[in-house]
Simulated scan of single mutants.
Amino acid sequence: MHRVRPILLMAVLAVAIGGPLATPSALAQSTSVDTWVQIGTRTPDAGCVVDVSAEVRSGGAGVGGAEVSVMLADDASRQLISSGSSMTDGAGVAALVFDTSAGYGGQKTWLDILVNGSYLGGVSIFITAGGACAGAPESLQFGGDVSTVASGAPVQAASTGGAVIIPGILTYAQQRNLSCEYAAVAIATGTLGNWVSEYDIEAQIGLSDNPHWGYRGDITGAWGNTTDYGIYAEALVAALNAYGFNGEVSYDGRDALTAQIAAGHPTIVWLGMWGDQSIDEYTADGTRYQVTAGMHVMVAYGYDDGGVYLSDPANGGLTYYDWGTFQWMWDVMDNMALGVS
């Protein structure tokens, strides 16, 4: 199957990056749905706005208040061309569009279908010179488990207390073994409406043994060691600024994290997935820094009295940790966080 990578789920990376998946976690609430999608045409010309309708059902009943998203990207380069989303009505039906204006005749693209941020499937769209914008409808059916954390409506946590959720959180699987930080930036910026690819962010950043100053190691190396490693919050701020975003670095713990989320800022968090496996190293000028075996990065997009909702680039899915488990991993990294706005 060909599937674009800008916003998607890629289970294959769960094998390549097995470490984070082996730690204690509980998925956010999910439900099984069937989704019927009708696309106005699969062979539009460049410059077309193509109608898409979707009906979401669970247990035979229409699911109202679900967020349906479509994302069109080049099949080869994975460059995002168009995206859109809409909430289902009381009958479980949503109407939305994708726009081929940024494409060109002869281009092969892929259209992702997501419900509540969970990838259900997709289909090839061939941008065809002289093609009509409608008139050749095609119906498709997808099924799978999706998060019940609806992006457009208040969410009540199933555990204790009411949840605070940032609307429209995206799911995305990192493209290389050690690109979780750049993938987290893609998730955060995409959630805010202007997706910046992990490759574009990477291009803004240099290498450094000190991850506070740049990327440490080989991004294609094996996960879990401290030689081929990653990057910390401070070194991402200038790259975010280059694309019109602000990055606020914090080491101030739970209150600062919940304040960022409540303000609508997806917040990248650094976690020691194996507990405290940290060692200290020093730059030539004597600056001390910490590196931690088993370090991983996710995007916090919600919280409730029981724990934290996260979008995990290791597997392109949504994850929930209770506060105790989350804090155990986060404390290892000194509560490092980067709020994106």
Score class of each variant (00 low, 15 high):
residue 120 L to I: 09
residue 120 L to C: 09
residue 125 I to S: 05
residue 126 F to E: 12
residue 128 T to R: 15
residue 131 G to F: 12
residue 131 G to A: 12
residue 132 A to E: 14
residue 132 A to V: 08
residue 133 C to T: 05
residue 134 A to T: 14
residue 134 A to N: 13
residue 134 A to S: 15
residue 135 G to I: 11
residue 136 A to P: 01
residue 137 P to Y: 10
residue 137 P to W: 09
residue 137 P to F: 12
residue 138 E to H: 12
residue 138 E to Q: 15
residue 139 S to L: 08
residue 140 L to C: 05
residue 140 L to Y: 12
residue 142 F to M: 11
residue 142 F to N: 07
residue 142 F to Y: 15
residue 146 V to R: 10
residue 146 V to S: 12
residue 147 S to A: 13
residue 147 S to N: 08
residue 148 T to E: 09
residue 148 T to M: 03
residue 149 V to I: 15
residue 150 A to D: 11
residue 155 V to P: 02
residue 155 V to S: 06
residue 155 V to D: 10
residue 156 Q to L: 11
residue 159 S to V: 15
residue 162 G to W: 03
residue 162 G to H: 08
residue 163 A to E: 01
residue 163 A to H: 00
residue 164 V to Q: 09
residue 164 V to K: 07
residue 165 I to G: 02
residue 166 I to H: 00
residue 167 P to K: 08
residue 167 P to I: 12
residue 170 L to Y: 02
residue 175 Q to R: 10
residue 176 R to P: 01
residue 177 N to F: 04
residue 177 N to K: 07
residue 179 S to E: 01
residue 180 C to Q: 00
residue 181 E to Q: 09
residue 182 Y to E: 00
residue 182 Y to L: 00
residue 184 A to Y: 00
residue 185 V to W: 00
residue 187 I to C: 06
residue 189 T to R: 14
residue 190 G to R: 09
residue 191 T to A: 07
residue 191 T to E: 07
residue 192 L to C: 04
residue 194 N to D: 13
residue 194 N to L: 08
residue 198 E to L: 09
residue 199 Y to C: 04
residue 199 Y to G: 04
residue 200 D to N: 14
residue 202 E to D: 15
residue 203 A to K: 10
residue 205 I to G: 03
residue 206 G to C: 07
residue 206 G to N: 08
residue 209 D to T: 11
residue 210 N to D: 15
residue 212 H to C: 06
residue 215 Y to W: 07
residue 215 Y to K: 05
residue 216 R to C: 10
residue 217 G to M: 01
residue 218 D to V: 07
residue 218 D to G: 04
residue 220 T to V: 06
residue 222 A to H: 06
residue 228 D to C: 08
residue 233 A to Q: 01
residue 234 E to W: 06
residue 239 A to N: 14
residue 240 L to M: 13
residue 240 L to A: 15
residue 240 L to H: 11
residue 242 A to P: 01
residue 245 F to V: 15
